[in-house]
Structures are given as C-alpha cells and as structure tokens.
Design a binder for these strands. Structure first.
Lengths: 127, 127
DNA sequence: GAATGAACAGGTTGTTCATAA
DNA sequence: TTATGAACAACCTGTTCATTC
C-alpha cells in the first residue's frame, strides 16, 4: 500500500549529467530564447573538444526538470507554413530568473567541489 | 533465447565512480599491500574535504573489477588468534603491474578531460 | 564490533520507436 | 529530414541483510 519513498542520498561523488545540463540550459536560455534541439546543437559544439556528446533525451529530461522546478515554462509555437510539426520554446516564469540564479549559485559550488576532487586525484595518483 | 548483449556506449560525460576508485585502489596497493576496509578508511579521509564518502560496496565492486581485469589477485589471510573472520589482502598478479600502468595512463587522460569539461562549464556559465 | 559479501532497490542515462509536418 | 516525446533496457550506485570471527 504505502509507497516506498526511501530516498537515496548522494555520497558526494561527481555531479550528475542532469544537473550539468540544467545549468547550461539556464544560461543559454538567459542569453537567447530557444528550443530543444537548437540548444543541443550548441552544446554538442561546445563539448566536442572534450568528446562529450549528450543525447537528445538527456537534454529533454533536463528541460522537463526545469519546467517542473518552476523555472521555465513551455511556449509552443506552430510555425505557419513551416516544415516542422512544432517548436517548443522555453521562457522563464515570473519567479524563474530568481530561482535560476539560486540554482546556478549551487552549481557553482558543485563544480568547484568536483574540480577539487579531480585535482586531488591527479595529485594523489600521478605524483 | 539470445542474450541481449547490446552494449551501451558512453557519451563521454564525467568518469564513473567505479573507474575513479579503481585508480585509487591501484595506487594504494602499489604503495602498501592492504585489505578492503582499511583502504576505504584511507579514501574516506582523503575525500573528506570534498564531501565525498564512498560506500563499502562501491569499494568492493571496484576491487572485484580489478581482480576480473587480471590486475590483482586475492590472498586470504585468516589471522590466528584474531577477532576477525578473515582479511582479504590483494596483490598484483604477474602481469598486473604492467596492466595497472596502462590503466593509470588511460585514467590520467580521463581525468584531464574531465577537468577540462568542468573548467569549460565554469567559464561558460559564470563569466 | 570489524570485515567481507551479496541481494536488492532506485535512479540515471543511452537506445529505440512513435509521431507529426 | 527536423523536432518532440515516450518507452524501454542497461548500467551504476546506495541500502540493507547475511555471515563469520
């Protein structure tokens, strides 16, 4: 009957792809309102030197998360006389920008922490 | 009937905890023959500043992996007149040290790559 | 309690398929 | 083909339980 709501705690290893992508989505949306696959193209270009190629489903998951967090909301646009079914643009909700800033602040700390962890590993294993 | 052997490829995001721990286990075993939980204590101390606390099962998984890779082999020791069931020390196989060096070389590249990715993210999102 | 191990559960992520213009 | 979405499978990892001294 009862749902098994045991939460699994993070043990504090490196940050998850989901969070990483959410951070980038926020920043890109701040710079320019955009839609899913367009953003993915940008990300693919950005990460190419590092051999990281996110999938479109990973990107959509991150996008849905931001909507659920109340940071973004959907804005469907059916382009008249266009080749595409629909485009879904995303824009910040009323309070979205504030929340986004809070999130980014958290992620900054996370990234710094991860950087420290990796540098420590390089020091410890390749002295 | 057929086993579903589709391999999932990495898309090249950050390295996995498993690989990270394997690297540390190799280095620690190079420095001093040791057993599972003792190594975990060392790791816990090392990572404390970064808020990372690996679990004992994560550590054992990494250890089994190294055995399966043919790098380490088990050496059970039942300590006479001791409080413990058994200790399992690990030592390098004949070819283990060579293989270990190859693995470490790979991981060094991985770590450098991840560091680059994280620094890029810091630059891109917190300019 | 210290130590090893394995089963299990939950979440994340990559692949694939569906749908529409 | 471009774009969105969802189902599915595989993998990783954290919790828990079992066992021995």
């Amino acid at each position: 009957m009862e749902k098994d709501e045991r939460k699994r705690e993070s043990r504090g290893f490196l940050l998850k792809q989901r969070a990483f992508l959410k951070l980038y989505l926020i920043t890109l949306m701040q710079q320019k309102k955009s839609y899913g696959l367009q953003v993915l193209d940008t990300l693919t270009e950005t990460f190419k030197p590092y051999g990281y190629q996110p999938t479109h489903s990973a990107m959509y998951e991150a996008l849905y998360d931001l909507v659920e967090d109340g940071i973004l909301h959907r804005q469907e646009i059916i382009p008249p006389n266009e080749r595409f079914k629909k485009l879904v643009y995303y824009e910040f909700t009323n309070n979205g920008l504030n929340q986004a800033e809070v999130y980014k602040k958290q992620l900054k700390e996370e990234l710094d922490r991860c950087q420290g962890l990796i540098q420590q590993a390089i020091r410890d294993n390749f002295a």
